[in-house]
């Protein structure tokens, strides 16, 4: 890797990191696992003056049980998310989706917070955070604030974080045992980004879907909440036909990208097919 020149600091505490970031100004960047930023540096698509490495801050790691929610430290790696028993029990969708991220090497280095703060709509976890109704916790010079996932992703590679703010953790509401889930990822090779991904949650009751939540990966400049599908699925019979019918509106209002792996019309088609499959799996049919 031959990046352009940058300065580098590795603070030992969150307070120090916040100060370093504020002192660094607009061209300072946080680096955690490096799995999104290093490729940009390597390709010289990003020219930060300063990298603030949060890899030495232990308070950013781990999972805390807050009763009706879990707070997952931003530095928790995908591998840890996949294998954490609390996450597995209370928000299995996140664990399942984290297990589809790239390859084992990336999952051992890449972090949940890094993946969200990068704000790539092709990343798997932003859509999952949106579907889960997660809240992102940020710390800046002015203190801490919480941002709903739906408000966090502003545009392509752009989030609601201020330049001086650090994402410290993710608050995820616990799901009851009556919720099923499925992350349906469509990609050409195991390591490739999703052409389209669908994160679906369904609460089943008396042979019907009482409530559903659906987030879409790579169907726009930000992760998309498929509200029309959610509305159509609520109260629908838990059958393939009924859920496929609900999924028919999955691509409504989306503006998916065009690239070498898929044109927008193909992505819209995939969104409908995959949403039907994800909902069916989440509803256990």
């Amino acid at each position: 890797m031959i990046p352009a020149k940058f300065d580098y600091v590795k603070p030992g505490s969150l307070d120090e990191a916040v100060r370093a970031l504020a002192d660094g100004g607009e061209d300072a960047k946080i680096i955690a696992g490096g799995q999104s930023l290093l490729p940009l540096l390597r390709l010289r698509l990003s020219y930060p003056d300063l990298l603030v490495d949060v890899g030495g801050i232990d308070e950013l790691r781990g999972v805390i049980d807050h009763g009706d929610s879990l707070v997952i430290g931003a530095r928790t790696t995908h591998y840890q998310v996949v294998h954490d028993p609390l996450i597995g029990e209370h928000c299995g969708l996140l664990a399942q989706a984290a297990g589809t991220v790239a390859d084992p090497a990336v999952r051992h280095r890449g972090t949940l917070g890094g993946s969200l703060a990068h704000g790539d709509p092709a990343g798997d976890l932003p859509a999952v955070a949106v579907a889960l109704g997660a809240t992102l916790i940020a710390r800046g010079p002015g203190g801490e604030r919480e941002i709903a996932a739906g408000d966090f992703f502003v545009d392509y590679l752009t989030t609601a974080l201020e330049p001086s703010e650090i994402l410290t953790g993710v608050r995820v509401p616990k799901l009851g045992g009556d919720w099923g889930y499925r992350y349906e990822k469509f990609h050409r090779t195991a390591q490739a980004w999703a052409i389209v991904g669908v994160a679906a949650l369904a609460r089943r009751s008396n042979g019907h879907v009482a409530e559903a939540r659906v987030g879409l990966t790579n169907m726009g400049s930000v992760p998309v909440r498929a509200s029309a599908v959610e509305a159509a699925a609520a109260g629908a019979e838990a059958t393939r036909d009924a859920l496929n019918a609900a999924a028919a509106s999955a691509a409504d209002g989306t503006e998916p990208p065009a690239d070498l792996h898929g044109a927008p019309d193909y992505r819209r088609h995939l969104a409908r097919v995959l949403t039907g499959r994800a909902l069916a799996a989440a509803a256990g049919v």
Binding site: L43, D103, R188, T189, A190, Q191, A192, W193, L260
Partner: peptide, 24 residues
């Protein structure tokens, strides 16, 4: 290998030029 209409190579990285791995 894909070139665009101006003759720029679009598949300059292994994210665009896909190779199968053992998992595939």
């Amino acid at each position: 290998a894909v070139y665009d209409e101006a003759g720029n190579l679009l598949t300059t990285t292994l994210a665009d030029y896909l190779l199968p791995s053992a998992a595939d």
